[in-house]
Design a binder for these strands. Structure first.
Length: 434
RNA sequence: GGAGAGAUGGCCGAGUGGUCGAAGGCGCACGCCUGGAAAGUGUGUAGGCGGGGAACCGUCUCGAGGGUUCGAAUCCCUCUCUCUCCGCCA
């Protein structure tokens, strides 16, 4: 969420940022609302001051048993009540209008983010001394690669028909060694982030309230992507990503600077309605209503967030490097970035069966956008509360990592070899199926 | 699910209608004291919003929201959360 004061001071920059996201300028109407609000607040404060002063005098008069004087003052101050109520109501309405308007405006892209309309304008990302050659190579299969569901169904470990009977489309049942492989991948990844990358493992709630969803931008704009379940008089949402609970850990708090950065990771199921994706990726388990994912979240000071972003990307890449899966990193253009992101890197794993790259991780820095929504702050060196910066990234999606392992490690007989790093999690076996 | 208790500043804790943003203590910061430290001692120590170059001033906030009142931490209503006991339960 934007700071209305910043918009007032920088209306052109604000509108220019919106434009890169394909949005119309709105600074003028927002600033007008804010000007009106400030005028109302000024008058409200003045009237309150008058009332408070009179009330104190009444208290004094009563203490001195000067009932006549007290009555006189009470009659006088009583006349302020209507005006006070009116001003309070207007202030509240204006504040709410501004908040409502701000809550649906996406974040401003960071400096240097490529301007573009959609994913076709994303650009490959390499650090210094980095190239395709410094990443795992594509596998040299020497036969026609199968897609993951062909392999999975053939080995009897991936069952979409049964899942459909239970739950409908976009669900899958994994069985036997494939189920274990899915678990192994999740274990491997979370161990990596905890042991090698310094993240604190968390088991968060999988059901969250609306306030948490507002904090991480799912609400109010993306309600239709979520699953809700009734709860008491209200409702709870199944988390679409562990970003929601992990980031909201710091909501409504003032941290000390030496607590930062906070780094959390969690392996959780994620639930998404995929309302906007009808007909896309319907085959296989690429796009499911339920999937497991290892998520990383960092909370930092503003001066450290850019560096933390690069670090987090490297943490996610390390998963694919250790699994030996070829991938590329794309920096998303302005038109393809998520609502709260200032800069996003997608990691796309090479899938031989599909003969293409598919997103397996997305790593974003949100600046203070979510912190404002959550009221998450820290005390700077002067002791003044400042908003923290938040980052989140998948490290990585377990279901998609399973797909990538299956397609990249497939053998001609339909079996799948187990990458070395996963063997300890698989009881030491070297391959499954076939 | 039933019964009860509670929510006050970084923490503990007082405060049942009047100058209370809030006693006292702890913690913390700075100073004094000390050769140095401890002890002692002095001062300071919430956040939001509005105004102002700033010092500062005003206002709002005692879990949240509403109400009564000239005036609410204190009274009323609703909600949220926490704790205790009982029941049920992985």
């Amino acid at each position: 969420m934007f700071d209305i004061k910043w918009i007032s001071a920088n209306p052109e920059a604000f509108d220019a940022a919106l434009k890169t996201r394909g949005m119309e300028p709105v600074s003028k109407s927002l600033v007008a609302l804010d000007d009106e609000r400030r005028a109302v607040v000024a008058e409200l404060n003045a009237v309150q001051e008058k009332r408070n002063a009179s009330s104190k005098l009444i208290g004094q008069a009563k203490a001195q048993k000067d009932e006549a004087r007290a009555q006189e003052l009470m009659a006088e101050v009583g006349g302020l009540k209507d005006r006070l109520g009116e001003l309070e109501a207007r202030e509240k309405a204006l504040t709410e209008d501004i908040r409502a308007a701000l809550s649906v405006i996406p974040n401003m892209p960071a400096e240097g983010v490529p301007v573009g309309a959609d994913e076709s304008e994303n650009v490959p990302y390499f650090r210094a001394n980095e190239s395709d050659a410094t990443r795992p190579a594509k596998p040299n299969l020497g036969f026609t690669a199968k897609e993951h569901y062909e392999l999975g169904e053939a080995m009897g470990g991936m069952d979409f028909e049964t899942a459909a009977k239970l739950s409908g489309s976009r669900f899958v049942v994994l069985k036997g060694q494939l189920a274990r492989l899915e678990r192994a991948i999740g274990q491997f990844m979370i161990d990596l982030h905890v042991d090698a990358h310094g993240y604190t493992e968390v088991v968060p709630p999988y059901l969250v309230r609306d306030e948490a969803l507002f904090g991480t931008n799912q609400l109010p704009k993306f309600e239709e992507d979520l699953f809700f379940t009734p709860h008491g008089e209200g409702r709870l949402a199944l988390i679409p990503t562990a970003e929601v609970p992990l980031t909201n850990f710091v909501r409504e708090s003032i941290l000390t600077e030496d607590e930062l950065p906070l780094r959390f990771t969690a392996l959780t199921p994620c639930f998404r309605s995929e309302a906007g994706s009808a007909g896309r990726d319907t085959r296989g388990m690429l796009r499911q209503h339920q999937f497991n994912k290892v998520e990383m979240v960092s909370i930092t000071t503003p001066d450290k967030s850019a560096e933390e972003h690069e670090r987090m990307l490297a943490c996610a890449e390390e998963v694919l490097k250790r699994l030996g899966i070829h991938y590329r990193v794309m920096q998303l253009c302005t038109g393809d970035m998520g609502f709260g992101a200032r800069r996003t890197y997608d990691i796309e794993a090479w899938l031989p069966g599909q003969d293409t790259y598919r997103e397996i991780s997305s790593v974003s820095v949100c600046g203070d956008f979510q912190a404002r929504r959550m009221d998450a702050r820290y005390r700077d060196e002067n002791g003044k509360p400042q908003f923290v910066h938040t980052l989140n990234g998948s490290g990585v999606a377990v279901g998609r990592a399973l797909i990538a392992v299956m397609e990249n490690y497939q053998n001609e007989d339909g079996s799948v070899s187990i990458p070395d790093v996963l063997r300890p999690y698989m009881g030491g076996i070297e391959k499954i199926g076939g």
